[in-house]
Amino acid sequence: MPEINVGQLKVDSAPDGERFVMHMTGTAELKDSTPLAELLLKADGEVRALGLTQVDVDVRAVEFMNSSALNAFVRWFAGMKERGGGYTVRFLSDPSKRWQRSSLNALATFATGTVTVVTQ
């Protein structure tokens, strides 16, 4: 997938060996979660088509996400559960960015068993 801008959030994603890697940078201050949710759904389709078992979402360079952006991830993880899983998701996080410590852990709790948070 080419680099895509969702508002001030840039998303660059591609398969990398056995994984699918999404690099996100910028700020996710979304009025509506739909554009990001659609992008994540498209990535889900690509991951399934390639038969990959892990997705790394690198948000270390994301300064902030509002609740609408978090909701896009909630929609992704809820959809994964409905489709019977198939792969796991790792958030690569920077704990010095305060929002990442609390918001990513909340998402991991919502999708326990599917989503983990890794600090790098």
């Binding site: 609740s67 609408s68 978090l70 909701n71 909630v74 998402l107 919502f110």
Partner: peptide
């Protein structure tokens, strides 16, 4: 976390 499963309102 429970509210996350019920849609975006009030998040």
């Amino acid at each position: 976390v429970a509210l996350m499963g019920r849609g975006p309102g009030g998040l």
